[in-house]
């Protein structure tokens, strides 16, 4: 057996557009280890969102494989795929909360979908909302919350079904630095407390530096480099990684 929870083999994804085929991802090979926080960094349009969306099949790869705990997810039947998605939580840059549901009911949503017993639902949702520090906002609607609070609700919702993996697609990109730090330490807490495997997509080096164990550099649809954060950041090998680090140096 392996302690890789996700294995991606030769993954390619291209889109047909009016101006021909666009390759968003080419020949991606990547593993996510149980319990780690893996960062995927790349500039805008590098293919980061496409890559995470292939992990829960929100996007169908054009070719290649995604194995989740050894199972090829493309081979799953519809019902099994829905089950798989319940063991992969996901949060987004724009939070994507249900605007017509209050905070508590947003977190209840996945529990309703999964058919969790009614008596358990409210308990689970309230416990999670307490963990993310929103016990006093259960009845508030998303429009009444700050960005950071919205992302906390989204995290509670993503964790409601006790997933094995949390995918974060630019989860802090819409937040100010202080709120970013709070959300990142919340993610880190869940990772260390529950061993929650986490994949963090970002274009910010700071995010990687703060919470990731390993980092993969994605550049124009290809992974140019992957390794421990310290190694990649102190001695980058690929041009893409060097460029990312150079820009940060320049900006500071």
């Amino acid at each position: 057996m392996t302690d890789n929870i996700i294995t991606i083999n030769n993954l390619c994804k291209s889109y047909k557009t009016d101006s021909g085929e666009v390759a968003a991802l080419s020949e991606i090979n990547l593993t996510v280890r149980k319990g780690e926080i893996l960062g995927i960094i790349g500039s805008s349009g590098a293919g980061k969102s496409t890559l995470v969306r292939c992990v829960n099949l929100l996007e169908r790869p054009t070719s290649g494989q995604v194995l989740f705990e050894g199972t090829d997810i493309a081979s799953l039947k519809r019902k099994e795929l829905l089950k798989l998605r319940r063991s992969i939580g996901m949060i987004f840059q724009n939070f994507n909360l249900l605007s017509q549901r209050n905070v508590l009911k947003n977190v209840l949503f996945p529990l309703e979908i999964a058919g969790t017993a009614k008596s358990e639902r409210v308990d689970t949702a309230s416990r999670l909302l307490k963990e993310v520090g929103l016990s006093d906002k259960l009845k508030a609607y998303p429009s009444q919350l700050s960005g950071g609070q919205k992302q906390r609700v989204a995290i509670a919702r993503a964790l409601a079904l006790n997933p094995q993996v949390l995918l974060c697609d630019e989860a802090t990109s819409a937040l100010d630095p202080e709120t970013t730090a709070q959300i990142l330490s919340l993610i880190k807490d869940f990772n260390s407390k529950y061993g929650l495997t986490t994949v963090v997509i970002t274009h910010e080096l700071g995010v990687i530096r703060r919470i990731c164990d390993r980092v993969a550099v994605l550049d124009r649809g290809k992974i140019t480099e992957i390794g421990a954060v310290k190694e990649v950041f102190t001695s980058p090998q690929s041009d893409a990684a060097k460029r990312l680090l150079a820009y940060e140096g320049g900006a500071l």
């Binding site: 998605r85 319940r86 939580g89 994507n96 949503f109």
Partner: peptide
């Protein structure tokens, strides 16, 4: 984005229609 989040929660198409 909201529909995408619901899909990511493992919601079926009818559930997305009725609940989202």
């Amino acid at each position: 984005g909201v529909i995408e989040a619901a899909l990511a929660c493992g919601a079926s198409t009818p559930k997305i229609l009725i609940k989202v």
